[in-house]
């Protein structure tokens, strides 16, 4: 009665014990592959750094941090932008409208990565057009920045563009302020000019809002300007964060898409690791939807399942054959297949 279970236990445990050394070897192999991966990453990083060095060498001879050079470049531009934007306040509405349209593209999660990149391109175009409307010299500078970041593949390169957008946001905030100021500063023109200088030297909008009362304090005895800045003080801290939020959130997602790291955004609806083998899903895996039930898994597990019973783990239905074919073409790793695949994914889901 009791011998039967124990005998099965023993027979089970023998192969398990013998398999342990193999596991060790595998582990070692995995470690080595991880090291290789790290090497690749390092090499790529160096490559990128040298690219930036070449590009930024005109402005920064030491060029140690690419981001640093970019930051200075952007800071220089910021002043430009703000002055130019301040000249044409009516352009602001256009800019806002264009941006909102372009960001609504980002918000729809069903879009394929390729369509996202295209929308990013459009967004940059519209941005360039807008600045071109205000001043030709400005458009050329910001356009150059954008195109530079587009030609680069790496994520960090996009930070320049992000800064650029933030600069635009800051400039818009400054424009708002200047508008309000102009409304009230008919009597006190010299003070307001001083304030404008203060503002354009400030980088973040929040700081400038705190700076404004100080600027007023240095020039006492101007009741008109006090009256003018009262509502501004009340408004600024509320409206500014909103503005910056509007711009930074979509830009972050746009940056992810352009950088090619889609999982940062798509992780909202897609698991980050394969539910079967618990390995992290890479870009190809996250855009791989083998079953209409929506169950996602990595290509490796999908292949293993196909070799066995070929049923989806989520709904236990047989994987369809045409999808299997698509999977094999994907395994070839041809980039040209990507747009077609993502399109078909959308129609399927």
């Amino acid at each position: 009665m009791s011998t039967q279970p124990t005998s099965t236990m023993v027979s089970d445990s023998i192969p398990m014990a013998s398999s342990n050394p193999k596991d060790f070897a595998k582990k070692k192999r995995v470690n080595r592959s991880a090291k290789l991966k790290q090497c690749k990453l390092d090499a790529r990083r160096e490559q990128w750094l040298s690219q930036v060095k070449n590009k930024g060498s005109k402005e920064e001879p030491n060029g140690e941090g690419g981001a640093c050079g970019q930051g200075i470049h952007v800071a220089n531009e910021r002043g430009n932008l703000m002055e130019k934007l301040a000249i044409m306040p009516q352009g602001k509405e256009e800019e806002n409208g264009g941006c909102m349209n372009h960001y609504s593209d980002f918000d729809s999660p069903s879009n394929s990565p390729t369509s996202h990149t295209s929308s990013v391109l459009e967004g940059n175009d519209s941005g360039t057009n807008f600045t071109g409307g205000s001043s030709s010299s400005n458009s050329s500078s910001s356009g150059g920045c954008c195109s530079g970041s587009m030609s680069e593949e790496d994520n960090e390169e996009d930070d320049g563009c992000l800064d650029d957008w933030e600069a635009v946001a800051d400039a818009l905030a400054a424009t708002d302020k200047k508008q309000e100021q102009h409304n009230s500063s008919l009597d006190s023109a010299p003070e307001s000019d001083g304030n404008v200088v203060n503002m354009s030297s400030q980088v973040s909008g929040m700081d400038s809002s705190q700076q404004n009362p100080k600027g007023r304090g240095t020039l006492p005895g101007s009741p008109v300007s006090i009256r003018a800045w009262r509502p501004d003080d009340a408004f600024r801290p509320q409206s500014l964060p909103n503005l910056s939020k509007q711009y930074t959130f979509p830009m972050n997602s746009g940056r992810h898409y352009r950088g090619g790291s889609v999982w940062g955004c798509k992780s909202l609806s897609i698991p980050t690791s394969c539910p079967i083998c618990c390995e992290d899903l890479d870009f190809t895996d996250t855009s791989f939807l083998p079953c209409p039930c929506g169950f996602r898994l990595c290509l490796f597990c999908h292949k293993r399942i196909l070799e066995e019973d070929g049923r989806c783990p989520g709904c236990r239905k047989q994987y369809k054959h045409d999808l299997v074919e698509g999977e094999t073409t994907r395994d070839a790793g041809c980039l040209m297949f990507r747009p077609a695949r993502s399109c078909s994914m959308i129609s399927r889901s």
């Binding site: 596991d23 995995v30 083998c277 618990c278 390995e279 490796f300 597990c301």
Partner: peptide
């Protein structure tokens, strides 16, 4: 084999 181990560890 490695996959099962990783999976069990996660569980």
């Amino acid at each position: 084999m490695q996959a099962s181990r990783a999976r069990l560890f996660k569980e």
